[in-house]
Simulated assay, not measured.
Amino acid sequence: MEDSVGKLHNLRYDSVQHNKIVVAHFMRAYLPGTCTFIYQYLTNIRRYTSVVLANQREQLDQFPFPHLYTPPLSPFSMFMVRAERRLLHRQRLIEPFFKQALRTSQASLIHAHFGYTGVYALPLQSASGLPLVTTFYGADVSSIPRSPQWHRSYRKLFERGSLFLVEGSHLRDQLIALGCPAEKVKIQRIGVDLTQFSYRPSPPTNEAIRILMVGRLTEKKGVEYGIRAFAQVAAKHPKIELNIIGDGELRKKIQQLINRLKHNVRSRIKLLGYVNYAAYAKEANQTHIFMAPSVTAKNGDSEGGAPTVLIEMQARGLPILSTQHADIPEVVVDGSSGYLVPERNPVALAEKLSALLETPEQWDILGQAGRVHVEQNHDIRKLAQELEAKYDQLLVR
């Protein structure tokens, strides 16, 4: 790995504002399309300079960022990293690069995103002596710790980490149940840029009524229950359409479910696959009702907190139909900005969906309440200042 570390001094760093304290944000990849919530913080923190340390870079066209360190691996080193199957051992192969990056960037604090990345950051924390903040988001609490190896690794992280952040009280309680000291756990909610999601009245309903679901096609998203609920009300409401944005391991199974429905139902369901942000925004602007029927998967995987898209769609002003799952009840106010039903209950989903379809005059009332809720609790400008205050408290100790 000498080739990677040796090249570090050639990376540009002169654009960083050294009059500000530097926070090194550590993550496995910069940046998957499912992690827009991280980008919101990176681009809205003002009193600190953020740099990113990541194993690999992706989608820089969608998430441009000036201060990014990734290992410039030689073909041989890349082969060695990929050949090493054990994740923790594989991470050690590129540790020297990140240790040097911390020194070069003059970082004063490490902020790891996702629990497993916090574990990867422990050697960096030991070598540098810097405070380590770790944000947990979902599967890193609900499913990964089921492995005995990861459970032991988390114990070390809880002992040596300075601060642990979660997006809601459900995720906080789960983290404490895993053994994290309660006094180290703080809530730091997911934020959105309200200027990117301006409130828009619902489109006219004289033609099709469009229902939208967004997310990876994986068990915890509960897509099949949304489809089953749609099928139950489709005959009574012939103008409704269901559009599903996302892709994943369950696409074939979901397509088979759709194919088994009657023709006049399945013809109104579209699997749009993965789309870019512009296409997602366009689809949202043409939507009347947003549905997110999240569930706890059989392997224990869950949202942990709540899908960011629920915050975005409320900011847009859409009425929400979702489930009583994880921290969703803190993000969607049941009966005010939308309706929540028990998990894995397509009958209850269908009942609430039918009620929404029969009372379009309520859509803007629900949408306005959702917008106010997001403005008060999920404005990234306010939340970035709250995160900066948490950094302040660590650095003055």
Rank of each mutant, 00 (worst) to 15 (best):
Y154P: 02
S162E: 04
Y199I: 14
T205E: 07
I190Y: 14
L130K: 03
R160T: 10
L163T: 01
L165F: 01
L157K: 07
P204C: 12
H111A: 07
Q149R: 12
S108L: 04
E159A: 15
R146C: 03
I187M: 15
G115A: 07
V166Y: 07
Q174Y: 04
P204K: 05
R160N: 13
E159N: 07
G168K: 01
L194W: 15
P181F: 10
G138Y: 12
V185R: 01
G138Q: 00
D193Y: 08
L157E: 10
T134H: 03
S153Y: 15
K184C: 00
S162G: 06
Q174T: 03
K184L: 02
T117C: 08
Q149E: 15
Y137I: 10
C180G: 05
Y120W: 12
Q188P: 01
Y154V: 14
Q149C: 02
R152K: 15
G191H: 13
H151I: 01
Q196S: 15
A112E: 00
G118S: 03
G115T: 05
G129R: 05
A177M: 09
N206P: 00
G179S: 10
L165Y: 03
S153H: 15
T134V: 14
S202Y: 03
S126K: 13
I187H: 09
P131V: 00
P203M: 05
S198K: 13
P203Q: 12
D173M: 08
H170G: 04
S147L: 11
G191F: 13
Q188W: 03
T205C: 01
S202G: 06
L175Q: 07
L175G: 05
V141W: 06
K156D: 14
K184A: 00
T195D: 11
W150G: 02
C180S: 09
S142D: 11
F158Y: 10
A112T: 01
G179T: 12
V119H: 06
T135P: 05
R189S: 13
A182D: 13
V192T: 11
R200F: 13
D193C: 02
R200P: 04
S126C: 02
Q125C: 06
Q188F: 04
Q149L: 08
G168F: 12
V133W: 06
F158K: 02
L157S: 09
L157F: 13
F197S: 04
T205I: 13
Y137A: 08
S128T: 14
P131Q: 02
R160P: 00
H111L: 07
Y199D: 03
S128H: 06
K186E: 13
L132D: 01
H151Q: 14
K186D: 08
L165W: 04
P181N: 11
I187A: 10
G161V: 11
S169E: 15
K184S: 04
S142M: 08
L122A: 07
Y120G: 02
L109S: 06
S128I: 15
S198I: 10
A139C: 03
L132M: 05
V192E: 03
S142K: 09
W150F: 11
A121M: 07
K186G: 01
K184T: 00
I190D: 02
A182Y: 09
R146T: 12
V119Q: 00
I110F: 01
V185S: 01
L175R: 08
Q125E: 09
Q174S: 12
A121H: 03
V141H: 01
Q196T: 12
L124A: 00
F136Y: 14
T195E: 13
F114C: 08
S169T: 15
E183D: 14
C180N: 10
G161H: 05
